[in-house]
Design a protein around this nucleic acid. Structure first.
Lengths: 364, 364
DNA sequence: CTGTTAGCGCTTTCAT
DNA sequence: ATGAAAGCGCTAACAG
């Protein structure tokens, strides 16, 4: 047993020079030597244990512990062209809505041994292109990205990568591959319909200045304009205020202050996120305005953030954690499918308007 | 030019079979062929452009665009044993405090071309050990992890990895390598001192049931006990309520309700996070208790979350984004240092008690 | 400044 | 059930 059969077992450096190897880490062949088997057998014992006899498996197990072996998945990924990594690209993780998505995807994928490579794209298309390139160079097995508006370069890069791509958090007529999202325009329209139905007439909008908020605002405004044309006498009005991104409580306060200045008789403020909504409510409260009696406020996102604090808040319920889970499970389905062909599949998760009685029946 | 000098340029599969290669992606040698240079020259043109003549650089640039080449960093990492990835391990990203850390580290590292491999460890030591192993198998160039209480297995694994390790968000006498954090025990004690100094006597604690919150509570209680012994007549009391993790507004409300039930004459509630603090304040408000006149509330974390809404809230300021930035810059310093030896370095970023006059002078 | 060669540590394939 | 050989796509080291 003096000499192992592995030609590199004496750990020479590259080119046979006799300085120590760069990493110094335990290799598969070291474990193999310790267990008295071939490297390939160790690989199998670790990755496809059912193909190895129980006796060998145990010996390998022991050798792994003895040597403190940590597999090198970089090498594994190169050899097998499967990295067991999924890239997740979101504008930011400092917003609860995307943090929930990332958390949920990470948790769900971990169950199947996949890891998340995080990419934060900011809110600029140009930045996104750079992040996509960097991330693709890691050869992830799939990529999830928020939004459906990408540069043509980004789209072609993603298609050329020939891996599952899931766009989330928005809707599109022409997804790159898969899509799990909803129409922000439709949400905006639905909110307008809803509030008009409730009897409100004078609206403010406190929206973050990002593309998806713009779409919701457009949907809202379009619906409002239609109502104005149909019922010119009703006095329907809307004023919009764009808050800086990232959205903050302070931004919400400022937006509310500005809206109430411009439109003191404002009855309802529609907000681009729960964060903005809370800022708006803080401002209203500081002015002694009763919510929802004097001013109704509508948020956007999952209720969990705000509901406990502000029972008067109504919101469009979009649960990031749920979207994340759906996305991850969908991907795992792709990975496990007999055919690894990309599936073209549009899935609208819909949305739900959560309205507390206290708020939205107030004026009836 | 009919035949390239690259022996694999005709893209045979492994072992010379003639099915197409697994990935089908453009390789360095494809770019080299298109540019009429050697693969190595392309590599240099991309990674060390200063070593290549301008003419060659331009030809390579053109060939890269022409072929749509996306470097394979998996192969690069294997060959060079530098992955340009930093693993970041936090309990969760669904808490603003850790989300800020991750956001900030990601942003800062991106400036130097590093990417973040995200690991979410939950709050259990056992889970952490598994995540550490998985993450190390990707051979990150460094690892950042929240907390200083790890299993012995985790510690030895991390030491054996021979990469920079930064523990953050806590203090330790025996860090694995580097540490950027603060003592939770000391924070708890400082808060107690502060509130006693302000004249408060009957305290509630609404803490999340995680190790670091426990340490703060211990620091707080120790300080309180000392005061009780020194001034038995003063009527100093404290009751603690442990909220479920992850901390939520609802959990904060429930904790406050329970505390106020047990100790109706409670004067100040110390909270384990801003989230809990906001829940506590919601409950107080719903009971018509004036803050801070009737009940003072202290949070923990960065003010940015809550300050705009609750000017009456006081808090221990721990800015996750700042810690993240510090950590990333510290790491980049290590990477660029002439000596890549691990630096043993304890850095206490300290903390700051932000106290709004309105709250903490209320009883004076 | 550019090219050649020999691996990085693993998995695929084929052979036993 | 186990092993041997070849190669994944890139970069370090040396040679020119």
């Amino acid at each position: 047993m003096g000499r192992s059969s592995d030609s590199r077992s004496e750990r020479p450096g590259q080119h046979g020079r006799d300085n120590p190897r760069a990493t110094g880490a335990v290799r598969l062949s070291d474990v193999a030597a310790a267990a008295g088997v071939a490297a390939m057998t160790v690989s199998r014992a670790l990755n496809q244990p059912e193909l190895v006899s129980e006796r060998t498996r145990e010996r390998v197990q022991r050798a792994v512990i003895e040597t403190g072996y940590v597999p090198n998945r970089v090498a594994g990924a190169l050899a097998s062209s499967r990295s067991k990594m999924v890239a997740v690209l979101v504008p930011t993780v400092a917003h609860s809505i995307f943090a929930d998505v990332v958390q949920s995807i990470t948790d769900t994928l971990a169950l199947d041994g996949y890891q998340v490579l995080l990419g934060l794209t900011g809110y600029q298309t140009q930045e996104e292109a750079a992040v996509v390139d960097t991330v693709l160079s890691r050869r992830p097995d799939a990529i999830v990205l928020a939004g459906t508006r990408h540069s043509e370069a980004t789209r072609s890069r993603l298609k050329a990568a020939r891996i599952p791509v899931v766009e989330i958090w928005d809707m599109s007529d022409d997804p790159i591959d898969m899509l799990i999202g909803f129409s922000h325009h439709a949400v905006g329209a639905a909110v307008a319909d809803y509030l008009l139905e409730c009897g409100y007439r004078r609206f403010g909008q406190a929206m973050a200045d990002d593309p998806r908020s713009h779409q919701r605002a457009e949907g809202f405004n379009k619906c409002i304009r239609k109502a104005q044309e149909e019922r010119p006498e009703s006095g329907i009005q809307v004023t919009t205020c764009w808050a800086d991104i990232p959205a903050s409580l302070a931004g919400g306060r400022a937006a509310a202050a500005s809206l109430l200045e411009e439109m003191p008789e404002c009855e309802a403020i529609v907000c681009g996120s729960d964060t903005l909504a809370m800022g708006v409510m803080a401002e209203a409260q500081s002015r002694g305005m009763a919510i929802p009696e004097t001013l109704a406020v509508m948020g956007f996102g999952d209720m969990s953030f705000a509901a406990a604090t502000w029972p008067a808040l109504s919101t469009v319920k979009i649960d990031g954690a749920e979207i994340g889970r759906l996305t991850a499970e969908h991907l795992l389905g792709c990975f496990n499918a007999p055919s690894p062909e990309p599936v073209h599949n549009v899935l609208d998760v819909g949305f739900e308007i959560m309205a507390r009685q206290t708020t939205l029946t107030a004026r009836n």
